[in-house]
């Protein structure tokens, strides 16, 4: 961790994430207006009262901007956690058991690789409706498959190690071997995976919101704000560019942090991530 912070790019990334997190948490106290209150002044230009102006319904854009990352970040981090926990256990179990179980898990991973992420969520949303829990589960499952792939690959290498064999020869149970011998040795990998998965989840959630398939109005959300403001790009560019900048800097921060962490731990982020 300390080694990661010594890299300027990683430090910048960490800083961006922390700033966004602090703002998101503090939004209810620092936002000048409630994000959903209609202020009877639609499309005000940016000024002293409304720093970024108001949107077409007369809501304060700056307040909405401060609030706009909360739900997306919640979904992203929750999905990242689901992905890393589920993916690590599934991947390591596949590496431990191999055989038929491994085959089934790998087919699942391949299946996910074949369905574009947005379509995957669309299937879920069509079936189960558009809500935050559905989003977390759908996005979490998508990201999980990547974690399964990397932790399975790492687990297969670990299974050849002497200490795992010694544990097997002593008759330790599968669960003990996975938790005691394998999991601690993929902790580094999982830290990087979490950062990568959360950033990828955030990208996905904001894209979904932009399409109208993610977070639903009137919840303040950057993706939704961009979509709402698109038509006003010419007259009120701040309405679109401010949330766009927020999403981009947050994802960039997460990716820089992930890369720095991977670099410091001697892992390869470019190979592990993506997809």
């Amino acid at each position: 961790m300390r080694a990661a912070l010594r890299r300027p790019a990683a430090l910048l990334g960490g800083l961006l994430v922390v700033v966004h997190l602090v703002v998101a948490i503090a939004a209810p106290w620092i936002a000048p207006f409630a994000p959903t209150s209609l202020l009877d002044a639609p499309l005000e230009p940016p000024g002293a009262t409304y720093w970024l102006g108001t949107d077409d319904l007369g809501r304060d854009a700056f307040s909405r901007l401060l609030w706009g990352g909360r739900v997306a970040m919640l979904v992203a981090f929750a999905a990242g956690a689901v992905a890393v926990l589920g993916g690590a256990l599934l991947g390591l179990a596949a590496a431990y058991r191999r055989g038929g179980f491994d085959d089934v898990v790998m087919r699942l991973v391949e299946m996910k690789l074949a369905v574009p992420t947005i379509l995957f969520v669309a299937i879920f949303v069509t079936g189960f409706g558009q809500s935050v829990p559905v989003l977390i589960v759908a996005v979490g499952i998508i990201q999980m498959m990547g974690v399964v792939r990397t932790s399975r690959a790492a687990g297969i290498v670990l299974m050849e190690q002497g200490y795992v064999r010694a544990a097997q020869l002593n008759g330790e149970s599968g669960l003990i071997i996975i938790l005691r011998e394998l999991l601690p040795n993929v902790a580094d990998l999982l830290a990087v995976e979490f950062a990568l998965r959360a950033s990828s989840a955030l990208l996905l959630v904001s894209a979904l919101s932009f399409l109208g398939l993610g977070i639903s109005p009137p919840t303040p959300d950057w993706g939704l704000m961009v979509e709402d403001g698109m038509a006003l790009l010419e007259s009120e560019p701040a309405l679109v560019l401010a949330p766009a900048l927020c999403i981009s800097t947050l994802v960039l921060g997460m990716n820089l942090a992930a890369e720095g962490l991977a670099d410091a731990l001697g892992l390869d982020a470019a190979r592990g991530g993506g997809g």
């Binding site: 950033s199 990208l203 904001s206 894209a207 932009f210 993706g223 961009v226 979509e227 698109m230 790009l233 679109v240 560019l241 766009a244 999403i247 981009s248 994802v251 960039l252 997460m254 990716n255």
Partner: peptide
């Protein structure tokens, strides 16, 4: 890689 496509497009 960090900027969403809809932002790039915009």
């Amino acid at each position: 890689y960090s900027i969403p496509e809809f932002v790039t497009g915009l």
